[in-house]
Simulated assay, not measured.
Amino acid sequence: MATTVAAALAAELGLRTGADLRRAAAGGTGVGADTAAAPGTAGAGLAAPHGAAHDESRTSPAIGPPKTILPVTPDISALLPHGGLATVTAITATRRGATSLLWRLLAGPTAAGAWCALVGLPDRYPLAAEAAGADLGRIAFVSAAGPRIADAAGALAEGVAAMVVPSDGLTPPQARRLTARARKGGTAIIWWETRPVAGPDARLKVTRADWKGLRANTGRLWGSGGLDACELDVTARWRSGGARRARVWPYGGDPAGPATPWSWGECP
């Protein structure tokens, strides 16, 4: 039933689904193919962390290559194990600046023409998404609450290229089933991690958020003035055992430097 609903939705709205975005083995076609050879975009080769293959085989079941790799912005690319948005990613929702990171994560796929959906996440500020580079015309905001979150997410799986879902909206068995469908069908799942989920390919966490443009204001929590830019320090832990960190400017500002590899002992 869910697959039928997703197919009908895709046909009616002309959605570019995960299947449309799959890259062929010999170079790929569709979204992501044109950027495959561009540095810092989806498809650009990233050296695997030393010992990553050994760690993954030891700690988790073998997983085949993703069917879809969605392009992301250069400042996000090196934080992800495949250089682009693929299969399952988690963002630690409780961290200040997490919403800005989410919008920046969606900027690349939507700018490339991919459809994304936010399920059961009310009170998001869409103009911030636009400021971060996301195409609002390619983002569906789906109102759902309680058990309807799992129903809506299941119906949209394989019908959109990427989907953001609050982890506490699904039971652990439901989350596992949705993850399995994502891996099989090529839809990228982004867990808005309000409750820990098992086995994301990458878990992104904002360790520091600094807003530029505010001036100190004695006796008040927030300063005066206008916000010019936001600077985020982001860490990424990969399922394979790798780790990265990068500085991201979701709304403009200084150009972000490349992400750097680091060891588990250095993770904050």
Rank of each mutant, 00 (worst) to 15 (best):
C267Y: 00
M163V: 15
A11D: 15
I63N: 00
L13Y: 12
G32P: 05
G108Y: 02
G169A: 11
A10M: 09
L127E: 15
A236V: 04
L101T: 14
T99C: 00
D20R: 06
A25G: 13
T92Y: 01
A24I: 06
A114E: 03
G213K: 06
G18D: 08
G186R: 03
M163N: 10
G253E: 14
S167L: 13
P126W: 07
C116Y: 07
A140N: 09
W191F: 04
R220A: 08
D210A: 05
A175H: 02
R237C: 06
A19S: 08
A38D: 02
G186D: 10
T4I: 07
M163E: 13
G185W: 08
V5R: 08
S100R: 02
A145V: 11
P39V: 13
L121Y: 00
A111G: 06
L102D: 00
G226C: 10
T194E: 13
C116P: 07
Q174R: 10
P109R: 11
E12M: 14
V197W: 00
A48D: 08
A11T: 15
R247H: 12
T171K: 02
I189R: 04
W249F: 11
T235V: 11
V88F: 00
A8P: 12
T87C: 09
L221C: 04
T110K: 01
D233P: 05
A93D: 10
A25K: 15
C230K: 10
M163Y: 07
A112E: 09
R16E: 11
E12P: 06
P126K: 09
A112R: 07
A52D: 05
A188P: 05
A175S: 14
A236Q: 01
A47Q: 13
P126L: 08
H50M: 10
E266M: 06
G154K: 00
A24Y: 01
S77V: 01
A78G: 09
A10K: 02
R215K: 04
E231H: 13
T92C: 07
A10N: 11
P66V: 12
W103F: 15
L101W: 10
T207G: 01
T207N: 01
P255F: 07
G84N: 06
L178V: 12
D34I: 11
D168H: 13
A161K: 01
V234C: 11
L156G: 02
G43N: 05
L80C: 13
G252A: 08
L101G: 12
R203E: 02
